[in-house]
Design a protein around this nucleic acid. Sequence first.
DNA 1: GTTAGCACTCTCGTCTGTCGAGTGCTAATT
DNA 2: AATTAGCACTCGACAGACGAGAGTGCTAAC
Lengths: 344, 344
Amino acid sequence: MEFSDRQLAILNAIIHDYIETAIPVGSRTIARKYMPDISSATIRNEMSDLEHMGMLVQPHTSAGRIPSQLAYRLYVNKIIKEHDFEGIVDNHIANDFERLKGEMLQVVKNAARLISMNTNYTAIALTPQLRRTTLKRIQLIPVTKGLMLMVIVTDAARVKQKMLHIPTNVSESLMDELSFIISKRFAGQAIADIDLNLLDGISDVKQNNPVFFDTINNYLNEVILHSDSSDVVLEGVKCIFDYPEYRDITHAKRFFNLLDSKELLQKILTDSTRRGTNVIIGGEDNYEELIDFSVVTTCYKVGPRPIGAIGVIGPVRMDYPKVISVLEQTGKALSNVMTSYINE
Amino acid sequence: MEFSDRQLAILNAIIHDYIETAIPVGSRTIARKYMPDISSATIRNEMSDLEHMGMLVQPHTSAGRIPSQLAYRLYVNKIIKEHDFEGIVDNHIANDFERLKGEMLQVVKNAARLISMNTNYTAIALTPQLRRTTLKRIQLIPVTKGLMLMVIVTDAARVKQKMLHIPTNVSESLMDELSFIISKRFAGQAIADIDLNLLDGISDVKQNNPVFFDTINNYLNEVILHSDSSDVVLEGVKCIFDYPEYRDITHAKRFFNLLDSKELLQKILTDSTRRGTNVIIGGEDNYEELIDFSVVTTCYKVGPRPIGAIGVIGPVRMDYPKVISVLEQTGKALSNVMTSYINE
DNA sequence: GTTAGCACTCTCGTCTGTCGAGTGCTAATT
DNA sequence: AATTAGCACTCGACAGACGAGAGTGCTAAC
């Protein structure tokens, strides 16, 4: 599909105006505000053409027009291609993270809060994914007769704790011993590569206490395979009320249903962890639930390795340039903090 | 203030009807649905009296009447006095908790979810408060050169972890040693009673490595004094949309502002931990922010000792009997689970 | 003390007409 | 051939009118 320069300029003006005002924009508005040297009639003709090309939509006859999903896509692709994200990372953002160093969950939550405050949309984030990190250390701690706590420390200083049932009696010293052996054998390796069976020949726990061994082994395998929907973080949920498209309660309700079942967000964020910056406009890519919403995501890394993702969810009429830039900045700041641990 | 039996019956009928329908109720409705043997005119006279006594409010002339805050208070007081909460705990609720044993945070979250599902209001909860529990064990785990993880295990099997900076170099064996000494010295004591200075004479860490010692000591004191607003759990936020009083976006917004700044909820829940079941109706007790909302809370315990609270927030027109009963039931089930650890 | 009856009030939904913004088309202009 | 002025037409938003319905308060009768 080919557009003349003027058509592109008009399309751009319409998108800008609609993102700003949420009111369908008419030919006279464009003529007055954006291109005073051509008449509204001309613009009218161009708009008619643009509508036939599928770039504009008319809510009803004799209303202005609004950009179609396709138009947003075109717009976003151009932004992503042209925008230079290599700029300096906002120090304000970076400093804020430094302060929280060590509490990875808190750092990610704070990143989400910052994103929400800076963009005025609802921020979403995926906490560092264990299976994408490398092991620092494992520690088993007895809690009661039938319970022990397993603490997994990873290179991104992300800590995961899990309470495990132990049907048999296990001495504290055995836990300490196993903690030490596992940590020593697998430290520095990817969590995904941990296989307790490799301990054969190093330790005889598996033979002497198979139930205990299996409990730990099973949980580790679980951690390796699955990410948890509780890994999804939300911030600034109430922002949605600032946008007139959700003034109607039924729309607001749909939004909260989306956020409530975190599976979808988890999937999108997990995808983005692999793929980097990604924009889903109004239910593209078979995300039917997302009709009337747009989601922008990007990943953050430890060194060269992506381990989690951050993003924004809001109306299709979203300030994409700003959102993309805030996300990229925050992603970099986050990555810096996470990476700094590796070198310690 | 004295009421005749008939006045009380009418008041009750009005409250019931309004809780159910959210429509101001008129004299004819009462006559038709609740007391067919007296005429609407009589009821009209009684309602007029009740209004003068401050129990009813008229939104505008020629509309029905709605119960006043005072009327709800009267109603709730009677429920609390009369209702027998000693009934059996719903097994469905109890079983669900058994399954999650060990993950205290998860158990509390699940309790909140259950409450929300059973009442169709937004549930709030306070996780077990460390300063109200007794110590089982403390474990220090080195993470990187400048960071260590402190894990506190308490009798309610609540686990708290905190990443701490250590400016000086501390060996792993020193951490182990101190973990062992602290755990041994203070196990079984209330967290609030822990005072590392009591270690004088037992260990010389304080003298040999004052910075390390202070870091730990400071954090422990912090834990003892303050509860964290992140200890507040929310579930079923979207329930609010089911109630017509929040159809207007500005009301919904107020609700989300309340939930967003968790300080208020934290205060209410902390109060309830001390005081047991508590009902705040439409901004009573100087909770001005809560105008147009009601909050019902109760506590849960380990043995005889209350350590946290659960509750519900919703419209003033709330189904108090149901909410109170669900909360009491869930509170008991929660207490049972928590208490079962003590005896292990 | 209770109730029937009536005048009155207020909300809500429907209908109507007007206004303004916007469109599409045609003919004139450049 | 492209642009523009002009005009008829469409539609939503808004305001005012109006009746229906629900409710009240008061009075007089039971």
